[in-house]
Design a protein around this nucleic acid. Sequence first.
DNA 1: TAAGTGAGAGCGAACATTCGCTCACGGTGG
DNA 2: CCACCGTGAGCGAATGTTCGCTCTCACTTA
Lengths: 234, 234
Amino acid sequence: MEETAYFEATQAEPLEGSGLTRAERRDQQVQRILEAAKNCFVRSGFQGASMQQICLECGMSPGALYRYFPSKEAIVEAICEADRQDDMSCFGELKHTDSAVEGLVEAAMAHILHTHEKGSAPLFAEMRSESMRNETIRCTIEGHKQQVAEMILPVLQGAIDRGEINPPADIRTLMAVVMSVGEGMAINDLPSRGVPIDQLEAVIRAMVVGMLRPTGGDADGNIQSTPGSFSSFG
Amino acid sequence: MEETAYFEATQAEPLEGSGLTRAERRDQQVQRILEAAKNCFVRSGFQGASMQQICLECGMSPGALYRYFPSKEAIVEAICEADRQDDMSCFGELKHTDSAVEGLVEAAMAHILHTHEKGSAPLFAEMRSESMRNETIRCTIEGHKQQVAEMILPVLQGAIDRGEINPPADIRTLMAVVMSVGEGMAINDLPSRGVPIDQLEAVIRAMVVGMLRPTGGDADGNIQSTPGSFSSFG
DNA sequence: TAAGTGAGAGCGAACATTCGCTCACGGTGG
DNA sequence: CCACCGTGAGCGAATGTTCGCTCTCACTTA
């Protein structure tokens, strides 16, 4: 039906027929609706926001809006899909890392900062609770989680196989905890609460080190050496 | 029969057990409404659940229900308040521990298991997203967090002062991360996803050890003290 | 003890809104 | 000319809440 093509050209210039294809203009309108709906959903929640509010926010009549989306639910789904796809971009560089600890730390920090900058924590919280009762959104979220897990897992498994890390539990449990922890910190948007980034990173690194237990030679893992002799053998 | 559903549930039964004061009966009715509303809210969300659904669930007419709560919002607030108060019970024993690591691990496990058994993760997710736009609920949640923080903080601060632990960041950041991590794991309800409890505890302990850096412990996370721990190995 | 009383409990139809959504119709670019 | 874009009044259903009513029961009074 509708494609949620994700163009960087979010500069939805007001409706001028200035040299735009019909398809281009259509995409532009879709984007306009999505952005307006996102604002409304953040403000009032999926169920609390009304179509009238969305119409008002994007300057369209109901009839016009319903030419682009068949229902309110479709808008919600499109927004969730786009948000999760955007969120995934943080984990792209995970493949190129050779240290499991640093890879996880970087991914966590990227995720936290990305969520903070985009201000998408409220929307994610909304998605999270909506997923408890909406099948489609649950699938969207679960699919996203699955994809993220499939990026993290080989990194950890590889490190285990090479003997670089020695986690205290099987990898399935480890993954579950890692994902939950990441979600908890992203949704809480710690930077907005005045938590300094470098301090945050230090705690996260310590946490990751504790969970993964890098064996002896973690060269690049610049763990702040403590005066109190923090032993790190496996 | 079907049409007089309200009458059947309400007036017939309590008449028998009339060893009740008016005030006692009133409390009983309030509880009945709260439980019914909780079910509805878990099923459909705060905004999605209608007063009619709640009325049906607790076997009362709208008129009767509105004698106990002035508005739907008041019911939501009462439920959030009760849920958070119940949630707090997990952290009561934190004072009696002498090991910061074991205290945190026990508190985390207690919280996770409590949330799992009560099945309150969906309600908490709902509260979490509602708190983004509802002032009263935000205060309820923040107040709860504050109280939990005030139980954890002195344990950590004491351990730092005594030189038992050496965290990689200041205690404010540490607290923020600990709270976020705890929330992330409670809300994800890992036991219900098949994560074994002992494995989960092992990872959490390793995580806590990593964050707190006990000066006397070894890298396996086995702390010598605290025989009262309900865990075996890590 | 018997009759009376008033406040509270409960019912459920009805209230004014608001909801998501539709449709007949005017406009416009290709 | 046709195919699309956009309008906005309006649909039926559902929303949270109210109100006039009946009934019950702990209480007073005779």
